[in-house]
Nucleic acid binder design. Structure first.
Length: 497
RNA sequence: GCCCCCAUCGUCUAGGGGACUAGGACGUAGGCCUUUCAAGCCUAAAACAGGAGUUCGAAUCUCCUUGGGGGCACCA
């Protein structure tokens, strides 16, 4: 069997991370089976269609490295791949259903339907269209038409029996047909609803497997009836679990929650992951671990490695939340592996944006030690500010001293350090390191260099956390290092008298 | 209200009747290393929602309860 799967978003905005995961699983499956991955745009709700959304979605997919074989931009043998460009096809098949007694015209107005729903709710009945237009006589129909009412086409759903939805992930799901309502297939604006467009397209695009989120599961029996009414073969279903909010309350959405309990921003759009300085390899790796597992206790892997192992049957049916902290860890792992030059290039835009005047050489020099400290690229801005900004930072005598190195000793230590830095040759990390270690051991009460080096770091960088001290001083250069030492010494003088 | 799905450490997961004193990862705690912070390494705490049943034997199968989620539009 030729595998053909599709990702079919509606262009109502950005690419959602949950959608990205659906796309990823489809992609993985298509690649594993040597099939085709198709991108189709479901834009039949023109009110919700947002200009530019198609591009935004494609950008998101491209960033993640999910390429498609057929789609709006690349075309393909079953196009067009944008539903509004296929409107005639749907109309044709909607009419076909009417002609074959599988569908009928309905003239109910929105008000009328709302009223019906209210009544049903008031009576605590199940809500759904009651089929009142099913048996209109030709005369009644003519009257409605004469009154200028524009009809919709509704499916004539079977009222008896049951329908089984076979699902690769969940097994057979049984529905009582009496619960399936006469859904609208063709709207009064002449465009199809999701149900019709989806079934018609999946058929003519020869889709073999439908992988989509759990939220669509209840539409499956209806769609199965449509396939039967048309006399078409139904695809194989596999309903993926939903991606939930970190709180566990509801499916992940833009609105619900902006921050997690630990204060992290809840990223939702793929573009937000990108802007947050996360690497696409990490995001995609992370996503693959949600609802699927590589096996062998392996957490970090590439898509190429995952692909041969991917099986639909292995997908976990339970909904899951996104663990953003784990994503950061994974991202850090990928950053550690980056070549210094690549990392410098990745980090530079953020430094530029922060208004820092970046010296490329100095930047490159501190990349190796930085790579172990970065979880997300933009963090580099605060880490490296000291390197590209000579504005004096706030420092107190308290910070420049230590319990094992009180005021007098600290002042003395910094004086010695200044002399040492001024004279040392060569001015490199190793020489500097050895000398400063020795100095440190001689100036602290406990004979350990740690307390001294900690304060020295503060004096050089203004930060408790920075690239390692010696490398930082080398990157800074002798002159600027001396200037910062002078600043500390001045601090002691000022307060001292 | 009706229908559907789901249920293993805080989170993501492994587990498909005996290999389970339930494994891994993130996070957390402690330790080592160390030039602070990281990174790395080691250790620890931490889960089969509850109840019946099937079986010699159940995290694994069935049912019920509970809890969570989704759906019930001329939205997708």
């Amino acid at each position: 069997m030729t595998v053909r799967v599709r990702f079919a978003p509606s262009p109502t905005g950005y690419l959602h991370i949950g959608g990205a995961r659906t796309a990823l699983f489809n992609w993985l499956f298509a690649r594993k089976r040597g099939g085709k991955f198709i991108l189709r745009i479901e834009d039949t709700d023109q009110k919700r269609t947002v200009p530019g959304a198609i591009e935004a979605i494609m950008d998101g997919l491209r960033w993640l490295g999910l390429d498609w074989d057929e789609g709006p931009d690349v075309g393909g043998p079953f196009g067009p791949y944008i539903q509004t460009e296929r409107a005639d096809l749907y109309r044709e098949w909607a009419n076909w259903l009417v002609e074959h007694d599988h569908a009928y015209k309905c003239y109910c107005t929105p008000d009328e339907l709302a009223e019906m729903r209210q009544e049903q709710m008031a009576k605590k009945q199940s809500v759904g269209y009651d089929g009142r237009c099913r048996h209109l006589t030709p005369q009644q129909r003519a009257e409605k038409e004469a009154a200028g009412l524009k009809p919709v086409i509704r499916f004539k759903a079977p009222r008896e029996g049951e329908t089984i939805v076979p699902d690769l992930i969940r097994g057979d799901i049984t529905y009582q047909n009496k619960q399936i309502t006469d859904s609208v297939l063709l709207k009064s604006d002449g465009l199809p609803t999701y149900h019709l467009a989806n079934v018609v397209d999946d058929h003519f695009m020869q889709i073999s497997h439908i992988m989509r989120a759990d939220e669509w599961i209840n539409t499956a029996p209806l769609h199965i009836h449509l396939y039967r009414a048309f006399g078409w073969e139904q695809p194989i279903y596999a309903h993926l679990s939903l991606v939930m909010n970190p709180s566990g309350k509801g499916k992940l959405s833009k609105r619900t929650q902006a921050f997690t309990d630990s204060g992290q921003q809840v990223l939702v759009k793929v573009s937000e992951f990108q802007e947050a300085g996360l690497l696409p390899e990490a995001v995609v790796n992370f996503l693959a671990n949600v609802g699927w597992s590589f096996g062998d206790d392996v957490e970090k892997f590439t898509l190429a490695e995952a692909m041969p192992r991917f099986e639909l049957e292995d997908i976990n049916p339970a909904p899951s939340r996104l663990n953003y902290t784990k994503l950061d860890w994974l991202n850090g792992q990928y950053i550690q592996e980056m070549e210094p030059l690549a990392l410098a290039q990745a980090v530079k835009p953020y430094l530029d944006a922060a208004g820092l005047e970046v010296n490329p050489e100095a930047l490159l020099a501190v990349m190796p030690p930085m790579s172990k400290r970065l979880k997300r690229l933009p963090e580099a801005v605060e880490f490296l500010r000291f390197l590209f900004d000579d504005a004096p930072f706030e420092l107190t005598v308290e910070q420049a001293t230590h319990k094992h190195m009180p005021r007098e000793a600290a002042q003395q230590a910094f004086r010695q350090m200044r002399d040492l830095v001024a004279a040392i040759e060569p001015y490199d990390a190793e020489t500097l390191g050895q000398a400063l270690m020795k100095l440190g051991e001689s100036v602290t009460a406990n004979g350990k260099a740690g307390p001294f080096l900690g304060t020295a770091r503060l004096a050089m960088t203004g930060q408790k956390v920075s690239p390692p001290l010696f490398e930082s001083m080398v990157a800074l250069g002798r002159e600027r290092s001396l200037a910062r030492l002078d600043a500390v010494l001045a601090l002691f003088e000022e307060i001292g008298d």
